[in-house]
Amino acid sequence: MLTLFQALWPLFALIVGGYLLRRWDFPGEAFWPAAERLNYFILFPALLFSSLATAPLDNPALPRLALAVFIGLGAGWVALLLARRLLGWPAARFGALTQGLLRFNTYLGLAAIGSLHGKDGLAIAALMLALMVPTVNLMSVWALTAERGVSLGGLLRPMARNPLILACLAGALVNLAGVGLPGGSDRLLNLLAVASLPLGLLCVGAALRPQELTGEIPALAWNCALRLLAMPALAFAVALGLRLPSMESAILVLFFALPTAPTAYVLTRQLGGDSHLMAGIITLQTLLAGASLLLVMQLMTGSTSLAG
């Protein structure tokens, strides 16, 4: 538990720091949108590209890891569709709840994986992101537009413009081509990548909206419980069933235990979803994740030890 705590608390300290800095209006309101854009379009894609360009694509566990990802996301998606049919959620609400259950905070995830598993863990995580980011984005767009319908082009167009997806695709192509990262380009990308995660975590904190934690307490409570506890339990069961190696299992569970992504708020507003509910989900999940991640990873470590 102490090792996990020492690995995770600095990440949440940065999130709290970002919240306090924005509340104190430092370095100024204009800084945060610019910082988010810099990170989203330049720094974070550099991290994903460099990780995938050097990732071990010959890892024999990768097909099982991919299957585990799709089983976990698929089970959550089917449960949401059934709940929508039973409860009659409008698309605006369904889209927010879907993102609360299926999307994940990539900044926090990669920072935690880097702290716990180092460069090898980041390479596996980047491979998972190459599968999860487009899948979850497709589900989110469809959920938010379910009532008015959307064409195939309308679903795929955001994917074609998403810098994270493009970075994953480019990194995988470089890896498969076997050209590597020559001429010091690996050093340049590493410098950009090092800046990405702390800036991303500060921006996560700056985006928190505690004032939105009103009026939707039951929905916030069950959505947070499912995302932070039930989804990682499902991922752990799938990892055991597919006999994934320990590091791959830990990374899978951690991704399914992450709070939802702050960018879900932007997508919700753009597509006419319930932005009040979405902001509340993002804020509460992020606040609770400090304790839930410690609990989930500790339980998983104990269960793995007993199984071994």
Rank of each mutant, 00 (worst) to 15 (best):
L4G: 05
F5T: 12
P10I: 03
V16K: 07
Y19P: 02
R22D: 02
R22C: 02
W24T: 13
G28T: 04
G28M: 06
W32N: 05
R37K: 12
I42H: 08
L48F: 03
L48Y: 01
S50Q: 08
T54S: 14
T54A: 14
P63T: 08
R64M: 11
L65Y: 05
A66Y: 10
A66V: 15
L67P: 06
F70R: 06
L80R: 01
L82R: 15
G88R: 14
A91N: 13
A92R: 11
F94M: 08
T98L: 10
Q99S: 09
Q99Y: 04
L102I: 09
N105T: 08
N105C: 12
G121H: 03
L122I: 11
L122P: 02
I124R: 06
A126I: 05
V133H: 00
M139Y: 14
R148C: 09
S151D: 11
G153M: 15
G154K: 04
R161A: 13
L164D: 01
L166I: 09
A167C: 08
A172W: 09
L173H: 13
V174N: 08
G178E: 05
L181N: 02
L191P: 07
S196R: 05
L197C: 11
L197G: 05
L199P: 05
L201H: 00
V204N: 02
L208Y: 03
G215T: 03
I217L: 14
I217H: 15
L220N: 01
C224Y: 07
L228S: 01
F236Q: 11
A239S: 11
L240P: 10
P245N: 10
S246N: 13
S249P: 06
I251Q: 00
A257M: 08
L258G: 00
P259K: 01
P259I: 04
T260N: 09
T263Y: 07
Y265F: 12
T268R: 03
R269D: 12
L271I: 06
G280W: 00
I282S: 00
T286L: 06
L293G: 00
Q298H: 13
T301C: 12
A307M: 08
A307E: 09
